[in-house]
C-alpha cells in the first residue's frame, strides 16, 4: 500500500516534469522574440515598407487561399462525409497528402506542374498566365498546403451531425438545400469555422512551397515568413518585429479557435 502510494507520486512527478519541460521549451523561445523586441524600434519598423508590404501580401494571399479552399472544400467535405461511393477512401487519402508532404516537395511539385517548363505551364503561357513570380502562385501554394485542414475539419463536422436530425428535417422539409441550410450548416458551423481558421493560419505560415514555387519578390510574392527569413541577415530588428506580429496573430487565432471549440447547445453536440 505504502509502496504503491510512493510509486503513484513518482509517476505524477514524472508526468509533471515532462509537461513542464514542454511548456518551458515552447514558451521560452516565444518569450525570447518579445524580450529582444526594442519597443523604441517598434513604431518605425511598423512603417518599414518591406514589413508593411510583406504583411499586406500575407493577409491578402492567405485570405484568398482560405476563401478558395472554403468554396471548393466545403462541398468536397460534404460529399465525403455524407455519401458512400467507390474510391471514397482513396480520394480521402489523396486530399490528406499535403498534410504529410514536406512543403519544399510541394513547391517542386507545383513547379513541375504549372511552371512555364512544367507539364501544363506552356498551355497556361498561351493564355498569358505565368505563375512563378506572381501573387497568384503564392495563393496556389497556400491552397495546396492548407486546404486539407479545412476539408478534414469540415468533413468531421458534417459527419458529427446526427443523421436522425437531418432525417427529421427531411420528413418535414421538401427542400434539400433548406435542410442543409437550417440543420446541417448550423450544427456543423463551429467545425467549419475552426477549419477555416486553421487553414488561414496555415496559409499565413506557409514558407517552403511559396519560396520554391512563387519566389521571393518583395511586394509581390514575399509573405511574412519569407520576409522574416530574408530580413534576418540585413535587418534583424525588422525580422524580429515581423515575428512578434505573427506570434500575436497566431495567439489570436488560437484563442478564437478555443472559444469556438467550446461546446454549444448543452451536451447534445
Amino acid at each position: 500500500m505504502g509502496l504503491e502510494r510512493v510509486s503513484d507520486r513518482l509517476i505524477i512527478i514524472l508526468l509533471a516534469f515532462a509537461c513542464l519541460f514542454f511548456i518551458a521549451f515552447i514558451s521560452f523561445p516565444i518569450a525570447a522574440v518579445f524580450l529582444n523586441l526594442d519597443l523604441d524600434m517598434l513604431m518605425p519598423q511598423l512603417r518599414n515598407p518591406q514589413v508593411l508590404s510583406a504583411l499586406t501580401v500575407s493577409i491578402v494571399t492567405s485570405s484568398f487561399a482560405t476563401l478558395t479552399s472554403f468554396i471548393f472544400g466545403i462541398p468536397t467535405a460534404y460529399l465525403l462525409a455524407t455519401r458512400r461511393f467507390h474510391g471514397r477512401s482513396i480520394i480521402d487519402t489523396v486530399l490528406d497528402i499535403p498534410i504529410v508532404l514536406p512543403p519544399a516537395v510541394a513547391g517542386v511539385a507545383l513547379l513541375l506542374a504549372f511552371a512555364p517548363r512544367g507539364i501544363i505551364g506552356p498551355t497556361l503561357k498561351e493564355f498569358g498566365i505565368i505563375l512563378p513570380g506572381s501573387t497568384l502562385a503564392v495563393v496556389l501554394a497556400q491552397i495546396f498546403v492548407a486546404s486539407p485542414f479545412l476539408i478534414r475539419s469540415a468533413k468531421a463536422a458534417f459527419e458529427n451531425v446526427d443523421r436522425n436530425l437531418v432525417n427529421s428535417a427531411k420528413i418535414l422539409n421538401p427542400s434539400r438545400l433548406r435542410v442543409f441550410l437550417t440543420i446541417t450548416l448550423p450544427l456543423s458551423s463551429h467545425g467549419l469555422l475552426a477549419g477555416t481558421i486553421m487553414t488561414w493560419a496555415r496559409s499565413m505560415g506557409e514558407f517552403g512551397a511559396t519560396l520554391m514555387f512563387a519566389g521571393n519578390l518583395p511586394g509581390v510574392t514575399q509573405t511574412m515568413p519569407l520576409a522574416i527569413y530574408m530580413l534576418m541577415a540585413e535587418d534583424p530588428m525588422a525580422s524580429n518585429v515581423l515575428s512578434a506580429i505573427l506570434i500575436v496573430v497566431s495567439f489570436g487565432v488560437l484563442a478564437l479557435f478555443k472559444i469556438l471549440g467550446r461546446k454549444r447547445y448543452g451536451a447534445r453536440l
Binding site: 436530425l165 420528413i171 450544427l187
Partner: peptide
C-alpha cells in the same frame, strides 16, 4: 414518394429535436 410528401409525423428514437 419523397419523405416530405407522405404526410408523415415521425418521432425518432432519441427525439432528435433540433438542438439549435
Amino acid at each position: 414518394v419523397s419523405p416530405s410528401d407522405r404526410g408523415i409525423g415521425y418521432v425518432f428514437q432519441n427525439y432528435s429535436l433540433f438542438p439549435h
